[in-house]
């Protein structure tokens, strides 16, 4: 069985597909066969861009009326499959909505789902995905067995998004069937935490702080440094859990994946779950008072020192340059 039909679970941010969606579409079209985007919501604004990146068809559920996408989108997918359009492979982004949809779909189709991947290859009949474990120092290759559809999820930035120059895709309605009890969860209000400056996962420079800052107030040093470098501030999970900064700042396995030109880690130990989110950065600078800290193992420039001494001087020196 060669792969002849691939679906991508597509998401929008405002009037554009998310970068993660474009990454998956780009990879999907390199694997051969037709590429279909599946949208939970209205697709009219993004069908053009989805087509440009390789989708020849777009299924759209239409407005979900506040329902969480997990049960709704998976049911709509299952209905299309039951109607005879059966993909060989479905690609998902490794994020909250992606997880919820793939989890529900995996039960509905009784198919396994392989998560946290960074690569995929189709070799003859075999579909193989690659997953980094132990903080990325070991790569595991998993081959799907049995019947498709095969379900796989990919970490952000696993692939580069490149336009195929295609025209707008045909949009086909894929209405959500009656969900019964499973459709009970409804969003009643949306809160967006305001941030200024570049977005964390798109910034050229990211400055992240960790528990080594000592107390919440000291995070202002990270913000000042990010500001003078025109970068974005980030954080380890330790200080997100402690409530110093919002979750949207978190870098790592459960947070954002960043690959900036420069990543500065201040008072961060370098736990494997943090490293998977930043190891792909082109240049890494670490400041930590413990010279044994694992973060130094990946740093291009490591400063063994106290953040309270190094950061203020660094900020002052950079501000003085104007």
């Amino acid at each position: 069985m060669a792969i002849s039909s691939i679906w991508v679970f597509a998401q929008a941010s405002g009037d554009a597909p998310t970068t993660g969606t474009l990454e998956l579409l780009t990879k999907a079209r390199s694997l051969g066969g037709t590429v279909t985007a599946f949208v939970g919501g209205d697709a009219s604004a993004i069908a053009g861009a989805l087509g440009e990146y390789g989708a020849s068809k777009v299924y759209a559920t239409g407005d979900l009326g506040g329902a969480l996408p997990g049960a709704a989108v998976a049911s709509a997918m299952q209905a299309v499959i039951a109607g005879g359009d059966r993909p060989d492979l479905v690609l998902f982004p490794q994020n909250y909505e992606g997880r919820d949809v793939m989890a529900r779909l995996s039960v509905k189709l009784d198919r396994t789902v392989v998560t946290n991947n960074v690569d995929i290859a189709v070799e003859g009949d075999a579909v193989k995905v690659t997953t980094p474990i132990f903080g990325g120092n070991t790569l595991v290759t998993t081959t799907f067995t049995g019947e498709g559809p095969f379900l796989a999820a990919f970490r952000p930035k696993s692939f580069a998004a490149e336009s195929a120059g295609g025209g707008a895709a045909e949009v086909v309605a894929a209405p959500v069937p009656d969900l019964g009890a499973t459709g009970g969860a409804v969003v009643t209000a949306v809160h967006v935490e305001e941030t200024s400056g570049p977005k964390l996962d798109e910034a050229e420079i990211v400055v992240s702080g960790g528990r080594g800052l000592g107390e919440a107030d000291k995070y202002s040093m990270i913000e000042s440094l990010a500001k003078v470098l025109k970068g974005a501030p980030g954080a380890s999970r330790a200080i997100v859990d402690a409530g110093w900064v919002p979750y949207s700042y978190q870098v790592g396995q459960t947070g954002k994946v960043v690959k900036p030109k420069v990543y500065i880690a201040a008072g961060i130990s370098g736990a494997t779950q943090h490293m998977v989110g930043m190891k792909g950065s082109k240049n890494i600078i670490a400041i930590n008072k413990d010279k044994e800290a694992p973060i130094f193992g990946v740093a291009d420039l490591g400063i063994v020192g106290d953040v309270h001494k190094v950061l203020p001087k660094l900020i002052e020196a950079l501000q003085a340059r104007g």
């Binding site: 070991t138 998993t142 081959t143 799907f144 130094f296 420039l301 063994v304 106290d306």
Partner: peptide
């Protein structure tokens, strides 16, 4: 399981760079 692990490999290691002790001027 519907899946089978077919290979396990070491990832390319990132080389550690220069590490210096702060003497007050490391900034």
């Amino acid at each position: 399981a519907g899946q089978q692990i077919t290979e396990v490999a070491q990832a390319a290691e990132r080389q550690a760079g220069e590490i210096i002790e702060d003497d007050g001027e490391a900034f």
